[in-house]
C-alpha cells in the first residue's frame, strides 16, 4: 500500500529537530532508518502529519564506550553497530543477537534505537535492553532524561517516550570478564520476528534469562545455579504464569512452551563456557 500524505522534515541539527518536535508534538513521528516506521506508514497503521527524519543528524551518529557502558546514538544503524570492532569484546550478547535483527538488507538502514522505539514484543534489541538493565536517553527541548529498560518499555509496542521527545541514545552495560552470554530464538525464517527469543547472562553464581515473544514486553527470570532438573522445573514454574497471546504464527501456549527448552539449551552452553575457563 501507499502511505497517506505527510510533510517531510529533514533537520540539519538536533536543536532544529527538537524545536520541531516541541511545536508539532503528537502530530510528528521521528524516523531514523524507517525499517519499522515506513512499513507502518505504508500500511497506514500510522498517519502522522509530519515525518521527522533524523538519519542525517551527525550529532546522533556515534558509538562511545567506557568501562560501564556502550552508548549508541539514535542515527547508528544496526549494520554499523555490527561492524563496530569492539562489539564482541564489549557487548558479546549484542554481537550474538544482532545478526537475527531483521535481514542484512534492513539492517543497512534500520537503527538500534529505532528498534527500541518500535518496541515489538518479540524483537531482540528490547530483549537485550531488558536483560542487560540498559538505559535509554531521551531528549526534548527542555532537557534530557534517562530511563531504565523497565520504565522505558511500557507495553505492547508502547514506550514512555513523550510526543515532544526523541530517543537520543541507548546505553548497554558492559558485563565483567566473569560473565557469559548466550542467545537463541525460534522463528519461521532467519531474521523474521521470533516466535520466542531467549537470551542469557550469567556468571559462576547467577543466571539471568530474558524471554521475548511471549508477553507484551520482555521478561527477565533471575536464577541461581542448580542441577538441570531443578532449573528446568523452576523455569517451567515461572513461565507458567506468563500470558502469551495467540496470533496467526503460533499460539501463546506454544510460545510459552518453547521457553524452558530454549533456556536449558542456553544454560548448557553457559555451563560449558564457564567450565572451559
Amino acid at each position: 500500500m501507499k502511505p497517506a500524505r505527510f510533510d517531510y522534515a529533514c533537520p540539519d541539527t538536533l536543536d532544529e529537530a527538537l524545536a520541531l518536535l516541541a511545536e508539532e508534538g503528537p502530530a510528528a513521528r521521528v524516523m531514523a532508518g524507517g525499517q519499522s516506521l515506513a512499513a507502518m506508514l505504508n500500511m497506514r497503521l500510522v498517519e502522522p502529519r509530519v515525518v521527522l527524519d533524523i538519519s542525517r543528524l551527525h550529532e546522533l551518529a556515534y558509538i562511545t564506550a567506557n568501562d560501564l557502558y556502550v552508548e549508541v546514538g539514535a542515527a547508528v544503524t544496526q549494520r554499523e553497530l555490527l561492524a563496530w570492532p569492539a562489539l564482541a569484546d564489549k557487548l558479546p550478547l549484542i554481537a550474538q543477537m544482532l545478526p537475527h535483527v531483521g535481514h542484512t538488507q534492513t539492517r543497512a538502514r534500520g537503527t538500534v534505537c529505532g528498534s527500541l522505539a518500535h518496541a515489538d514484543p518479540s524483537s531482540e534489541l528490547p530483549l537485550a535492553l531488558a536483560l542487560l538493565n540498559g538505559e535509554v536517553v531521551l531528549q526534548s527541548r527542555t532537557g534530557i532524561r534517562t530511563l531504565a529498560a523497565r520504565a522505558f518499555h511500557t507495553g505492547l509496542m508502547t514506550t514512555a517516550v513523550e510526543p515532544f521527545e526523541l530517543i537520543r541514545a541507548v546505553r548497554f552495560p558492559v558485563l565483567g570478564d566473569a560473565a557469559v552470554t548466550a542467545f537463541t530464538e525460534v522463528s519461521q525464517r532467519h531474521g523474521d520476528f521470533a516466535l520466542t527469543a531467549v537470551a542469557l547472562t550469567g556468571d559462576r553464581r547467577r543466571i539471568r534469562i530474558g524471554v521475548a515473544g511471549v508477553e507484551d514486553r520482555p521478561k527477565v527470570l533471575d536464577l541461581l545455579w542448580r542441577d538441570d532438573a531443578s532449573l528446568q522445573d523452576e523455569i517451567q514454574a515461572k513461565v507458567s504464569t506468563m500470558h502469551g497471546s495467540d496470533d496467526i504464527h503460533a499460539s501463546g501456549a506454544y510460545r510459552r512452551d518453547l521457553v524452558p527448552h530454549l533456556a536449558m539449551r542456553l544454560i548448557e552452553e553457559a555451563r560449558d563456557a564457564l567450565s572451559a575457563r
Partner: peptide
C-alpha cells in the same frame, strides 16, 4: 532544515 510539504 529541509521542510517539504505533503501536497507538493
Amino acid at each position: 532544515m529541509r521542510y517539504l510539504r505533503a501536497d507538493a
